[in-house]
Structure formats: structure tokens, C-alpha cells
Write a protein that binds this DNA or RNA. Structure first.
Length: 475
RNA sequence: GCCCCUAUCGUCUAGCCAGGUUAGGACACCAGCCUUUCAAGCUGGCGACACGGGUUCGAAUCCCGUUGGGGGUACCA
């Protein structure tokens, strides 16, 4: 039992979702999950893309049992199949040029009729075909679609009827003798013993063609399932205009693979109860093809972000560290002290929405000087007595026997009691002085990793800054 | 144009197949609580059965139509 996703180009989130459902289905039915790269269009596919797709699938944690196979490796088989169909008169030579076809189509559509190659042209007499063949005239090979309606028994949509008039003879061999997608797919599916074809809805109207081919080639039909497409916020097909579309882009945005996996899985499927945050094991356990939805889903970036925040907080530290590595490199923190890194990542992972934010948030622990956002300092600069208070605090911190969460907190609480001010009066400027930010982990948790020495320097810097840039009541 | 798919809060969806619910959950948004900041968390609020006909005592649920959205209509996949 096998499944075949057919990704082309970069890995679109729609393709990723198809791969996820394929994997989940394979887990529930057994069999093998095949990865086949559909690269029959040599113009549009290149090795870099192929590697990118394989890499993206691996990153998402999708297991592939067989492959990756390249469809282009089997072209001779596909061509041979076309010859067989030709010999059995299930396909025929067509000498009409693309321009001729276009013209005819335009003419027929122009008078409001529906175009069909089958009925638009009379087949040339056999002798003429022979003659032109011998003369070496260019031709394509068309599959002779049987004159009958075709019913697609779709896993997600039920029976879909295609009337005979909507079916046409289509090209299986181009004039350069290369097989087209339709032929290649069916040949490979047959030779690989594919039993389930789960793909995007954009292939639904191709399916009658494929069924025709399967039957003509004397093969059993696989089960088909067509998934609704993913739309952008504008309800149009998800495109770069509306935002990120590829797995790679979300990865670069600091999204965790388990978040994207979970989100994508729930876009078009639900376990039937109220569960939403589900890991791979739960999804495998709960997945059934019957619950696959039929309606187009709008990709909701906000919900993905929410899910990602959840996974940022719940993913084990070591795993976060692993995923964070490339972002650290980008932030210039590639050789950060591992021990300090572990400590601050633990402090920050739960309050970061994504890996980019996390890397940014812990940056200051690994650099010497801070840059102040002027607007953020305004409130502090309005308090003329603040520099002196901070000075006192810094002195106390310098004199502490040991520099811990407890000792620094106690020192500050003692000081505010002496000064008879509220805790907030000291705690906020201290946070800013030590981290350059108004937000972050609980103050005394960050005091220690910043360190006493560096903390002293940062106090001094900030105090000097306050004195040099006071804000008078008038502004 | 023609063929195919589809229709529940702004978004993802449960409920539909086996008609009777205050139509449930989540994201987003709003308010409150908590709080040393920011998040998180907790509580509450907002908000939907596309429309029109049937069938029925009763329709989100079954049938027909309309409208909307999507896909296809290639010597692309």
C-alpha cells in the first residue's frame, strides 16, 4: 500500500499539508509513503528545488518510506506506454499545430459553443496519417478518451460525475516525444503500485483523464482524494502577494516545525472534538480520512503565530536550542557561551512568539554596550532624583557578598523601604538600565545572567545618560 | 462561455449522513482579574447557519433554484 505526494517547485504550504495528510493516512493504513518528485517539465524544475523540497519535508518531520524518486528517471517507460497505446489504437497521431488549435478554439468559443478537440476536427484518413508520418512531419500523440461519462469516487467528495461531453482527447506525447504529466503520473503510479492518490483539488478535473489512462493500460485504479486549496486572506489562491507561501519562508520567520505541522493539519481537518493543540503522535492517533473537510481554508497567520507561541513555551529546551542555532548565527551569536545561552534561552523561550524574537531578546546578554530607544527612556528622564537612587542601588549591588536572585532582590527591597518609594520606581529603570528594554523576564532573573561587572558598567552608562539627557517638565 | 467542487461567527471549525441544541470550541478583537515590565494564564463579552422556494408539527441539517467563492478548460504540473 503506497501514497504519492507530487510536489513541484518550492514546497508550498498546500503541498506540505498534502504531504502531512499522506503521512497520516499511511500511518493509519500501513503501507509505504513514497516521495516522488514530478519533474517532467525540465524548464521549471532544477536540482536545487528538489533538494529544497526534500529538506523542507525533513524539517517538518514528515517521514518518507521510499524515495525520493525522480519522475524524469522513468521517461523511457512512459514513452513505451504511449507506443503501446498507439499500437492498440487507444491513442493516435495528431498533426495539427498549436496555432491551428488556438484558432479553432477561439472561433468555436467565439460563437458561444464549447470547444472539444474530439468534435472540432474530423480525423484524417489513415493513408494520410501514414503518409505524413513517413514524411517525418511533426506530431503529438493524443489519448483516445472513451466515449462515456466517468465517475471519480473521491475519498473527500464522494462520487463526482464528469459527463462524456466534458471529456476530451488529450496529449500524452509532445512533438519532441517527451511524455506529458498525465501519462507520466499514471505510468509511475502503476509501476510503483500506488494505492492512494491524495492531492490538491486543482487535479480533480484531471482525474477522469488519469482514470481513462489507468483503464487503457489495464491497471487497477488507486483511491483518489482531492483536498481543497488553501486561500490567502483575500480569499484568492494563496500567493506571495498576501504573504509567505512556502515552508521555507515560515521557517525563516522563526516558526517551529511542530507548530506549522499542527496548524496545517487543522486547516481542513479536525479530530471532531475540541482539541487543537496536538502533537504528531496525537494527530496520527486521531486522523481519519473521513473527517477531511471539503471547503477552502483561508490561511490564518495569526492562528499559526498563536500556535507557535505555544510550542515555543512547551518545547524542551534542548530542542529549542537546536532550532535556534541558525538564528543565533544570523544575530552574530554563533559562539555564545553555551552555559549562559542555555540559561537565558530558558528564561526567554516562553515569552517569545518565534525564534527570531527569541534570538533578538537574548542578544544583550552577549554584548557589552546597550543602545537606548530614546522614546522608551522619556519617562525615566523626567525623574530628576532617579540617577542618584540608581547610583545608590548600584553601589549596594557592588558591595553584595554574593550576587544572586535572592540577594539582589533583598537589596532592592531594603532600599525602597529606606527611600520610602514604591517598588516600581526602581524596578523599571533598573530593568532598562541592565537590559535596554522595558520588557523581559522577571527583573531579578535577568540580573544574574547580565553579571555583576557588566551590570555595574550598564548602571553607570545609564546614569550618565540620564544626567546628560534630562527632560524638563516643559518638554 | 462550458465542466467540476463548495457555502455555519472576520478566520479555522464542531454540529449535517441517522431533522427537535440557548448552534459548541479555537484564533483575532474588546473588557476585567492576576502581575515587578512584557508575554502567558484566568474570567467575561462580541460574533455565524449566503439568499429564495419547497418537504415537515418542526430545517443549519433533506430536496430544488439563485447568488457568492474556488478549481479546470495548455505540446504546465
Amino acid at each position: 500500500m503506497r501514497f504519492a505526494p507530487s510536489p513541484t517547485g518550492f514546497l508550498h504550504v498546500g503541498g506540505a499539508r498534502t504531504a502531512i495528510y499522506n503521512e497520516l493516512l499511511r500511518k493509519s493504513l500501513g503501507g509505504a509513503h513514497i516521495l516522488r518528485i514530478e519533474d517532467t517539465d525540465k524548464e521549471r524544475s532544477d536540482d536545487a528545488m528538489t533538494r529544497q523540497i526534500i529538506e523542507a519535508l525533513a524539517w517538518l518531520g514528515i517521514e518518507v518510506d521510499e524515495g525520493p524518486f525522480l519522475q524524469s528517471a522513468n521517461l523511457q517507460d512512459h514513452t513505451a506506454a504511449a507506443q503501446r497505446l498507439l499500437a492498440e489504437d487507444k491513442a493516435y497521431h495528431c498533426f495539427r499545430t498549436a496555432e491551428e488549435l488556438d484558432e479553432k478554439r477561439k472561433e468555436i468559443l467565439g460563437r458561444g459553443d464549447s470547444y472539444r478537440y474530439k468534435t472540432a476536427f474530423d480525423p484524417p484518413p489513415r493513408e494520410e496519417v501514414e503518409r505524413r508520418l513517413e514524411a517525418g512531419e511533426p506530431y503529438v500523440v493524443r489519448f483516445r478518451m472513451p466515449d462515456e461519462a466517468i465517475v471519480v469516487e473521491d475519498i473527500v467528495r464522494g462520487d463526482v460525475h464528469f459527463p462524456e461531453e466534458s471529456l476530451d482527447d488529450f496529449i500524452i506525447l509532445r512533438s519532441d516525444r517527451t511524455p506529458t504529466y498525465h501519462l507520466s503520473v499514471v505510468c509511475d503510479d502503476i509501476s510503483m503500485g500506488v494505492t492512494h492518490v491524495i492531492r490538491g483539488e486543482d487535479h480533480l478535473s484531471n482525474t477522469p483523464k488519469h482514470i481513462g489512462l489507468f483503464r487503457a493500460l489495464g491497471a487497477d485504479l488507486p483511491r483518489f482524494g482531492h483536498l481543497p486549496l488553501i486561500l490567502g486572506a483575500d480569499k484568492k489562491r494563496l500567493s506571495k502577494r498576501t504573504g509567505a507561501t512556502s515552508v521555507e519562508e515560515f521557517r525563516a520567520q522563526g516558526i517551529l516545525p511542530q507548530a506549522l505541522y499542527n496548524y496545517l493539519c487543522l486547516l481542513g481537518w479536525s479530530p471532531g472534538d475540541d482539541r487543537e493543540l496536538m502533537d504528531r503522535a496525537e494527530l496520527i492517533e486521531a486522523f481519519t480520512a473521513e473527517r477531511l473537510g471539503k471547503t477552502h481554508g483561508v490561511f490564518d497567520v495569526d492562528k499559526l503565530k498563536w500556535m507557535n507561541s505555544h510550542y515555543m513555551a512547551s518545547t524542551p529546551l534542548d530542542e529549542i536550542l537546536e532550532h535556534l542555532a541558525p538564528f543565533l548565527e544570523e544575530a552574530g551569536l554563533a559562539d555564545a557561551d553555551p552555559e549562559l545561552l542555555r540559561h537565558v534561552v530558558e528564561l526567554h523561550q516562553g515569552r517569545s512568539k518565534n525564534l527570531v524574537e527569541l534570538a533578538e531578546g537574548i542578544r544583550h546578554y552577549f554584548q557589552e554596550s546597550l543602545e537606548y530607544d530614546l522614546e522608551a527612556t522619556k519617562k525615566f528622564r523626567k525623574q530628576p532624583e532617579l540617577p542618584e537612587m540608581l547610583e545608590t542601588l548600584a553601589t549596594r549591588y557592588a558591595e553584595l557578598d554574593d550576587y544572586t536572585v535572592e540577594s539582589t532582590e533583598k537589596a532592592m527591597r531594603d532600599l525602597i523601604a529606606e527611600l520610602d518609594v514604591k517598588l516600581g520606581v526602581l524596578i523599571h529603570p533598573t530593568r532598562f538600565a541592565l537590559s535596554g528594554s522595558k520588557a523581559g523576564p522577571p527583573l531579578f532573573d535577568l540580573v544574574v545572567p547580565v553579571g555583576r561587572e557588566r551590570g555595574q558598567r550598564r548602571f553607570a552608562d545609564f546614569i550618565r545618560f540620564l544626567r546628560e539627557n534630562p527632560v524638563t517638565p516643559e518638554g
